[in-house]
Each structure stands twice: as structure tokens, then as C-alpha cells.
Design a protein around this nucleic acid. Sequence first.
DNA 1: GACTCGGTTTGTATCGTTATAAATTCAACA
DNA 2: TGTTGAATTTATAACGATACAAACCGAGTC
Lengths: 352, 352
Amino acid sequence: MTREESGRAGGAPDNDRMMEPPGKGKPTLRTIAGLTGLAVTTVSRALAGDVQIALETRMRVSQVAREIGYMPDRAAQRLRTGRTNVISLILDPHEEILGYATSMINGVTEALRDTPYHLVITPHFSDRPQIEPVAHILRNRTADGVIFTRTEPLDARVKMLLESDFPFICHGRTELATPHPYVDYDNYAFAYQAARRLTASGCRKLAIILPPTAFTFAHHMRHGFMTAIREEGLAYEIPQEVTLDSKSDAIRDCFFALFAHPDRPDGVVCGGEVIAMAVMAAAYDHGLKLGQDVHIVTKQTSGLFDQVRPRIPTIYEDLAEAGRLMGELLLKRIAEKKPVTELQYLQTVTGF
Amino acid sequence: MTREESGRAGGAPDNDRMMEPPGKGKPTLRTIAGLTGLAVTTVSRALAGDVQIALETRMRVSQVAREIGYMPDRAAQRLRTGRTNVISLILDPHEEILGYATSMINGVTEALRDTPYHLVITPHFSDRPQIEPVAHILRNRTADGVIFTRTEPLDARVKMLLESDFPFICHGRTELATPHPYVDYDNYAFAYQAARRLTASGCRKLAIILPPTAFTFAHHMRHGFMTAIREEGLAYEIPQEVTLDSKSDAIRDCFFALFAHPDRPDGVVCGGEVIAMAVMAAAYDHGLKLGQDVHIVTKQTSGLFDQVRPRIPTIYEDLAEAGRLMGELLLKRIAEKKPVTELQYLQTVTGF
DNA sequence: GACTCGGTTTGTATCGTTATAAATTCAACA
DNA sequence: TGTTGAATTTATAACGATACAAACCGAGTC
């Protein structure tokens, strides 16, 4: 008690700079130190909730801090502690899937809400090696955690991050022996169920557009699709010249050609809305009737297909939720060393 | 010359820490200082290209820096100089327009390529005042420049940023007296030309879905639309209960109701692809034939409508270019105090 | 030989924060 | 009365970079 007051009265001697408030600038620890008559160190520790600091002091300090609207300087914290309070989301500007990035960003953003973390978008330009942004972040420690997508079976980024024991989470799984955090959508189930719906509609020959084979989820999709095919003993066709990444014009042209054949597929599994629109366009341009001559099931990641006519059956993938999950799991990974199994999540296919 | 070598030989005395390389960590200025036998200050200034430093020294230093892969520590630079090397893009997670955010992010990202700037996504949660993220950035100087969208005629964010003389650029114009940097799309021209195309197709009564009136571009659109209406002396209808921000279901329902009337509109101007899909769905659900009973012109911001059948006339808005322009102009604004007129850009409507 | 002067390099302090070690206070105890 | 120790608080140094003022060097001048 007396210390306080003596501190207030005689507090000037050492940190006499308090007299000159740090310009018109933001309040710093020193501002609070001046106001309370405490040392900067004490203020810092008080705000950090150190139990070595008297409870009363802690309360008084945080009270003052709140009053003057103190916010710690991120740069200073980062320089001192090495923690950046940054989550880096690596994005490929070429993602064609409708609003893929936006939904995911929104999800991650939501998870980061009310945390000190900022979201930095790190581009991966397609003319550069995929590992580059990860290597850069790792080398310069410009983030506390990394999120990336389009995971490959033997993903070099995963390997590198695992080796460095650096917090990360990816959208999609690998086939690596070492388990690692991920959020994935069950594309096996998607393709399987999509195919089953088509067979249930009486289709005799199915087609599917797969992602580039480099990506793990291409195999999942193929597997799900083929399982349904085998169960039914159906004919099928997997066009090799297009992928989910192809321009929609290319996909339309491809299916326009396919639909010209007498043994054309009468059911198509579409991995995305734009793909579905392209296939529909191809059918339309042939005068084929949707739901009669040709059936389609598509993955839906936005509200768009609620407005598409005729109505097309869809299977929903919640990308915003995926983003939110990735954010949450990554934060968990950063905060504490959890067993990896708690950092893995597989989004199931909703409904049939 | 001699200095160099003496420096190399006897360079140890003061900065003897060079012997213990800073852990396994990244190289810093001190690493280079150790290697070259120069003082940290000299290295810093050499890398900064200070002409006070001998050309030979500058070259030698940057050579060494390159060899050991030196990258300046952002946190340290930021703490010392106050420059963050961050551009903040304020995003509203509720933007419904298809891929709006993604395209813009890609554009900004492209502009920031090969600069030291990072892109930070700052969310604006719709349950919070619009000014909040801007005020926060301003107060804590967490960025060197701000980008935001959905500008209002008397936009509080613009006012605040102008007052603080803080670099920013917005997507959309204001009606403020003080000129400020912006990139905008000519929505007047869009609406005008869209309407004219519809009248050219023989429409007798036009409808348009406008953005929420709070936004400046709502007025631009209305004005363009109404100009065309007046020139042709046509009937028109502007549904009040929906806006471009409405859920697409609401828009479809609204137009389903409109299309039920005998004096229904036979031409609709759609400000976005999802809107257009909703209107098309409403028409379809009434059995109205597109291109005959009802005509539509839509703004196109992605490749989606290339696949929509029947083909719908579209007017293109390049959001990625808008993002790129915003990035470039903002960087220009940060680098040098240019006249504002060079920091304004209006994207014209391409073709008729 | 002392002196000045460009051209060049260096030392010192600082940004705001925090880890570490040291200091202070005061009550309890011998 | 002096000692011990728990409870608090404080001083110091560092993170890596840069602004500023001062120092250094050799050459040219008087």
C-alpha cells in the first residue's frame, strides 16, 4: 500500500521520460508505467497475468491499460519473442472452383476472430515451385502456422513442415507414413454416392471429371466412383484430356464430343458447379434433355445450384466450415502439442 | 583496400560475437558484418544503397548478402521504422457476389508481387460498425495502406482516412468534396447499356435489382438505368424488397411473384451472375421462355455465363483487374505524394 | 608539419517488448 | 538485534534494424 504511494510520488527518478508522453502516438508499456508509477517490466508481467505480481497490481494495471486503450505493439512482441501472430494461407490464384478461396478465407477468418492472429494471404504463383512459399515462411518465420490446399500423396510441403516441426494444416490428405493434421472432405463418399444416385436414376454409362492426378483427392474420387461402377457392373468413361482444373470451355467441348457418340455416357459426376454448368451446356447444345437423356450430379459449394433449372441433384461440401476447422485445429496445434489424431478431420457427405 | 584487409584481420575486436554464429538461425546484419569485417551500420546502409558508402563496399556487401540468403527481419524493420510492409484488405465475409473477393484478392496479390508487401485480410464482421477495422488499423498502424470496398456516398471510412492522411484506396466512389483515390467500375454505363440492349431486343417493361441504397454504386446503376428508361419512354419496375445483397432465393421468389402479373417486366438487368440465375429460375418456374417472353442482361465477373444456356447477353466487369489497379495505385500513393487525379481509375464497360 | 576537406566508415541510441537475474520490502524468527 | 525468506518489484540486456552524429582516412593546401 505504502509502496504504491511512495511509488507514485517518488516514481519519477528513473523513468523520467514519462513526463514527455511518447508524442501523440499510441500508449505503450511505458505510458502505463508512468501512469501507475510502476516499472515497465512490472507492467508487462502484470498484463501477462504473472502470478508473481500481486493480484491488486495486476488488476490496477489492466484497468489503466483498458482505460487508455493500450494495445501491445505487434512488431515489438514479434521481434522479442519470435511469435508473429500470423497465420499464412497459401493460395493458388488459379483455383477455378467457384468461390473456393473466398469460402475458405471466410472460414479461417471466423476461426481467427477474437484471437490475436492475423490472416496473411501468401500467393503461390503457378510459374514457381510449389514448395517455395512454404520454404520462405519456414526460413524467415513469417508466420506461426501455415494452411495450404491441394495436397498431394507425397506432398513435399508436408514433408518439409513435418521435418521442421512447424505448425500447419492442409486441406486434403497424403499417403505419407507420418500422420499429420488435415481437414479433408470425403471425396470417396462423394463420388460413390454421386454415382449411386445416377445409377438409381437408371443410367447405364457414367462419366466423371477427375482432378489432376497429382492431387490425393483425385484418387479418392476415382476410387469412390469405380467402387460404384464395379458394384453395378456399369460402363464408364473418364476423359483423360480434361480435369477439374481445365477451363470450362475445354470441358464443355470435351463433353460435346463425348455426347456425339452413340454409346455416350448418360450420367455425369461433376466435381464442381462450373464443371456441371459446362456439362449441362454440352448437353443442351446437343439438344439432350437433362434428367432424361443425360443425368448429372454435382458437388455444390455455394448457393448457385439452388437457382439452376432444371434442378440438378447436388452433394454439398461446406468449404467455409473446412476453413473454420482448419483455423481452429491449427490454433490448437500452435497452442499445445496435441496428439495428431485430434488435429484431423474428415468432412462427411451430408445426406444421400 | 588496406582497410578492408585490416578489417578482415583485426575486425574481431568489437563485434567478437561474430565468432558464435547466431545459433542455427537466420543470417542478420551482424552475420554479414562479421563476414565482411564491416560494422553493422555500414552493412545496413550498404544494402540500402546509400551513396555515402563506397560503391565497391556496396557491391561486396550485397554479394555476401545474396550468397548467405540474407533477408531483413520484418519485425525489426517495422519496429524501428514504423513501416509495416503490409497492405490491409478489408473484406466483408457476407459478400454474396460470386468470387468477388477471390478475384480481387488475386488482383491485389498480383500487384504486390515482387514488392516487400504482404496482403493481410482484415475481416469486417457485419455485426460490427463498418468503421471499426479502419479505426483499428489507423490507431495501431498495423498496415501501410488500406483497401476496402462497398463505398458509400458519405463514407465514414474515407473521411477518417483522409483526415489522417493515411494511404488508402477504395472500390467505388463517394460524393465527398475532397477527391480521393479509388478504382470503380462504370456502373452507370453498365446499367445504361444493359437497358439499351434489352430495349433493342424489343422489351417493353424493364426491371432491375439494385444494390442496397447505402452504396454509391446503387445510385450510379439507378441513374444509368433510368436514363435509358427515359430515353425510350418505357415502363419499368424496381423491386424494393430485394437488393443485390439479398439471398438468391429471395430474389427468385420476388421475380416469381413479379412474373405472375399480366404487366410483368419482359426485360431484367441483373447486377451479378447469381442474381441472373435466380431470375432465370423464376422465369423457368413460370414456363416463360428466355429470349422470347423474358430477356435478361447480366453483369459477368467470371467465366460461368459462358456455360449458361440459353446464352444470355452479358457485360463484363474485370474484378481481378480492379484488384490489380487498386494495389498498384495504393503502392504509388504510399511511395510518393502523387496528385490524387493520378490515383483514380474508372473501369469502362467493354463493348456493346 | 599542422590543417582542412571530401569520401567513407563507425558508435551510440532507439523502436516496444520480454526473459533473466537481481533487488527490495516486510514480517517472522532465533 | 540480526537473520532468513517469501512476496513483490525492478534493472539490465537482448531481439534486428536504422537515424544521427561523430570519427576516421589519405590527400591536398598553406
